[in-house]
Amino acid sequence: MKEAQKIFSRPRSLRNISTHYCGGCGHGIAHRLVAEIVDELGIRERVIAVAPVGCAVIAYDYWDFDCSEAAHGRALAVATGIKRVRPQNIVFTYQGDGDLAAIGTSETIHAANRGENVTVIFINNAIYGMTGGQMAPTTLLGQRTATTPAGRQIGVHGAPLKISEMLALLPAVKYIERVSLHSPQEVLKAKSAIKRAFQSQIDNLGFSMVEVLSACPTYWDMPPKKALDWIRDVMSKEFPLGRIK
């Protein structure tokens, strides 16, 4: 028998430990995709990550490269400081919807508008996971959360915030794509988008961001597969997939 070759395994840049994420949570896939791209681009030794506050707060325990924390919402200010003094490094932030599009909206918009040559991996799961399932800026209309027990209503809570479309208006933003993790095919597309975003930074083009629609089975109160189907059937209708800029 011919010796079998390993065709899929854990990337070098992802530490061989269990994550604290709930079963079916999209963070694990997104972490792995970032690690795969870092390996494929050969940038592990010059990448610097900025972890958020939220469920992914200890992302630095999972990635095997240099990482910093940032206060809630401030990841892009921290990334600005790092990249400006070490332009030869590849700097990215990994942020959730509350971090990037609520408490950190100002830092997000202005880092993008300055054209900071950094990459953002924006995990949109339409909820605050870490704190117990409260309404996020991206929560869908009608979606029930801990703080919208009767569902999000436009007249009371506002509409889901489409930060990617907003950022696409800024001239210094060079690449934005919205992807989803709701099936293996979509995961592979997400990986291509993340690769393009990092390549954009390597080529010194300016601000790049990938918005990743990701499941939170726990606070959506759905089994994992149903959560993925909900992204496909409901969430991606509100947040259409594809290249935004």
């Binding site: 206060a71 921290v78 830092e107």
Partner: peptide, 26 residues
């Protein structure tokens, strides 16, 4: 060196956090 006019004082101190992480006197 690098000068950045930040969008807020909050952003400024966090940029300093980042630059200091990267080893610069900030």
């Amino acid at each position: 060196g690098v000068f950045v006019q930040s969008e807020s004082e909050v952003a400024a101190i966090n940029m300093v956090f980042g630059a200091s992480c990267a080893g610069a006197r900030s």
